[in-house]
């Protein structure tokens, strides 16, 4: 065709979100509010782990929760019933939270008044991995019934997570799950990932996870 010209663009597609996320992180550092972005498949145990975590360390730290639920308030109600402050973000079918939505949530809860805020991200292992929320740390939960092959199917999620919480270890007997295999597969793309094995049902192993949180917060503030 006549007259077609080539123009360099050279821009990151997600640069707006990345910049907004960085601004949030700067504010969180100024306020000394530690934020953990919690991601997993539906039902892996995000809400259960939040409740157990708050029960273990909520006496020492002021904890808040930002809930992303497609269209219900079920999880936010559960959290509030346990005496923990929570705000609900209606994602209305959105498959992930982005920095702008998280900003709304942080403002809604008054993040500067908290030591620790959890974001319960939308339940899936694909989309949330692509969008920086502005959280200080990314944590993912993989539950035993999901299988130890997930790093091969969702590599990006494993590569961007600072922590991997293996949940539902009380179900280990019922499943074909090898923790050493999972650890090795996760380390392939992310050798520095911290791994904890817990049961949010029985409470087993919770202290490894909460000790990690306490240490991170201490180093942060």
């Amino acid at each position: 065709m006549e007259g077609i010209k080539l123009f360099e663009v050279r821009e990151d597609i997600l640069s707006d979100n990345d910049a907004a996320a960085q601004q949030l992180r700067d504010k969180l550092r100024r306020d000394k509010t530690f934020v953990i972005n919690l991601m997993s498949s539906p039902g892996a145990g995000k809400t259960s782990l939040l409740l157990k975590t708050a029960a273990a360390i909520g006496g020492d730290l002021k904890i808040g929760v930002i809930e992303a639920d497609i269209d219900s308030t079920v999880d936010a109600e559960k959290i509030r019933n346990a005496g923990i402050e929570a705000v609900q973000l209606r994602t209305g079918g959105f498959c992930h939270l982005d920095a702008a939505m998280v900003k709304t949530g942080l403002e809604g809860i008054g993040s500067q008044n908290f030591d620790l805020i959890f974001i319960e991200n939308v339940g899936n292992l694909v989309c949330p991995a692509e969008f920086d929320t502005g959280a200080i740390r990314n944590a993912m939960i993989l539950s035993v019934p999901e299988g130890d092959d997930k790093p091969m199917k969702y590599p990006l999620m494993f590569s961007i997570s600072d922590v991997l919480v293996i949940n539902k270890i009380d179900m280990m007997e019922l499943a074909d799950f090898e923790t050493t295999v999972l650890r090795q597969r996760a380390a392939e793309l992310n050798p520095d990932i911290s791994v904890f094995e817990v049961s949010a049902k029985t409470g087993e192993g919770i202290h490894g996870w909460t000790d990690w949180i306490k240490k991170e917060i201490k180093d942060f503030s």
């Binding site: 065709m1 006549e2 007259g3 077609i4 010209k5 080539l6 123009f7 360099e8 663009v9 050279r10 821009e11 990151d12 597609i13 997600l14 692509e130 990006l156 590569s159 090795q184 380390a187 392939e188 793309l189 992310n190 050798p191």
Partner: peptide, 19 residues
């Protein structure tokens, strides 16, 4: 099990053709 990720996460617009 001990590799760092050098690249593979790009999300980038390189160029465009236009009239």
């Amino acid at each position: 099990g001990d590799f760092s990720l050098v690249s593979g996460r790009q999300y980038y617009i390189k160029d465009m053709e236009a009239v």
